[in-house]
Measured scan of single mutants.
Amino acid sequence: MATVKFKYKGEEKEVDISKIKKVWRVGKMISFTYDEGGGKTGRGAVSEKDAPKELLQMLEKQ
């Protein structure tokens, strides 16, 4: 499965596409929420050019 690499609050993070719950576009950025486990929801964003094609496909399906 594909992963998304991004920075959040200065920390490098990587999340599996299957854990992503919601995806939306903000200008040229793709924002998303994902399941961190333990009932927590994380947030992240990547630029449109750095987003994996699976993430862009999720955006188109909504």
Rank of each mutant, 00 (worst) to 15 (best):
K40N: 13
Y34Q: 00
D50M: 09
V46Q: 03
K61S: 12
K19H: 14
K19W: 11
D35W: 11
L59W: 11
F6G: 01
S31C: 09
K61P: 11
T41D: 07
R43G: 07
V4K: 00
L55C: 02
K49I: 15
R25W: 14
S31N: 09
Y34G: 00
V15T: 07
K49D: 14
G10Y: 02
R25Q: 12
R43T: 13
I17K: 02
Q57I: 13
K40Y: 14
D35E: 12
I20E: 00
Y8K: 04
I20A: 01
G27W: 06
L55T: 01
L55D: 00
T41C: 15
S47F: 06
G37K: 06
V23A: 11
L55V: 08
K49N: 08
G37H: 14
G44M: 01
G42T: 05
G38N: 08
M1N: 15
M58R: 09
E14T: 07
Q57F: 12
E14D: 03
F32C: 03
R43M: 07
K49Y: 06
I20H: 00
K21D: 09
I17A: 03
T3V: 10
E36H: 09
Y34I: 02
F32K: 00
G27A: 08
G10M: 02
A45W: 05
G38R: 09
K28L: 10
K5I: 03
K53C: 15
V15W: 00
K22H: 15
K22W: 15
K9T: 01
M29V: 09
E14L: 02
A51Q: 03
A45M: 09
M29W: 11
E54Q: 08
E54R: 04
Y34E: 00
K28H: 06
L56E: 13
W24T: 03
S47N: 14
T33P: 00
L59A: 12
V26F: 05
E36S: 05
F6W: 14
E54H: 07
Y8M: 03
G10Q: 02
G44A: 11
T3A: 05
K61G: 09
E60L: 10
E60P: 13
K49H: 12
I30A: 03
E54F: 09
Y34A: 01
A45N: 11
I30K: 00
I30F: 13
L56W: 10
A2N: 05
T41K: 15
I30E: 00
K53D: 14
V15L: 03
V23R: 01
M1D: 06
G42D: 14
A51M: 06
Y8L: 03
E54Y: 04
K5S: 02
R25D: 03
P52A: 04
P52Y: 02
V4G: 00
G44P: 01
V26A: 11
D50K: 12
E36N: 12
E14Q: 05
I17H: 02
Q62A: 10
M1S: 15
K9L: 13
E36I: 06
E36Q: 14
M58E: 09
V15C: 04
L56Y: 07
P52F: 02
A51S: 13
K61L: 13
K22P: 01
S18H: 10
E11R: 05
S18P: 08
M29Q: 08
E48K: 07
E48C: 14
G37Q: 11
K7A: 05
S18Y: 15
L55G: 00
A45C: 14
M58L: 13
K61T: 12
S18L: 14
G42A: 09
A2T: 13
E60F: 11
V23E: 01
G44D: 01
L59M: 14
K5V: 03
E11A: 12
I17Q: 03
K28C: 14
S31P: 07
G27H: 13
G37C: 15
V26Q: 11
S47D: 14
K9Y: 10
I20P: 00
G27F: 04
G44I: 03
K49P: 07
S47L: 14
K53E: 15
L55R: 00
T41Q: 10
D50T: 10
M58G: 04
G39Q: 06
L55H: 00
K53N: 11
M1E: 07
K21S: 14
T33F: 10
K9A: 06
T33M: 08
F6D: 01
T41E: 09
E60R: 10
T33D: 08
E12N: 06
I17N: 02
Y8A: 04
T41I: 13
P52R: 02
Y34N: 01
G38K: 12
V46M: 06
Y34F: 07
E54V: 06
G39V: 11
K61R: 06
K5F: 03
E12F: 10
D50E: 09
K5E: 01
M58W: 05
K22Q: 13
K28A: 07
G27K: 15
G42R: 07
V46K: 02
S47G: 13
L55M: 07
E54S: 05
K19R: 09
K61Q: 08
K49M: 12
A51Y: 02
E12D: 11
K28M: 09
M58K: 04
K13F: 07
I17S: 03
V26D: 04
E14M: 04
D35F: 09
K21M: 15
S18E: 15
E54P: 04
G27Q: 15
S31F: 08
V46G: 01
K13N: 03
M58Q: 06
F6C: 02
I20Q: 00
W24N: 03
K19S: 09
S47H: 06
S31W: 11
I30N: 01
G37M: 12
V23W: 06
Q62T: 08
M58D: 03
F32D: 00
I20Y: 00
G44K: 00
M1I: 09
Y8Q: 04
G37I: 09
K9S: 04
D16T: 10
E36D: 08
V15R: 01
V23I: 10
K13S: 02
K19E: 08
A2Q: 12
E11Q: 06
A2V: 14
R43D: 10
G39P: 07
S47R: 13
E48T: 06
A2S: 07
W24M: 04
E12A: 10
Q62Y: 03
T3R: 06
S47W: 13
Q62R: 03
K13Y: 09
L56Q: 09
V23Y: 06
A45L: 05
K21Y: 15
M58S: 04
A45R: 11
Y34S: 01
M29Y: 13
S47E: 08
G27S: 13
Y8W: 09
S47I: 11
A45E: 15
L55E: 00
K19A: 12
S31M: 05
K21A: 15
P52N: 04
E48N: 08
I30R: 01
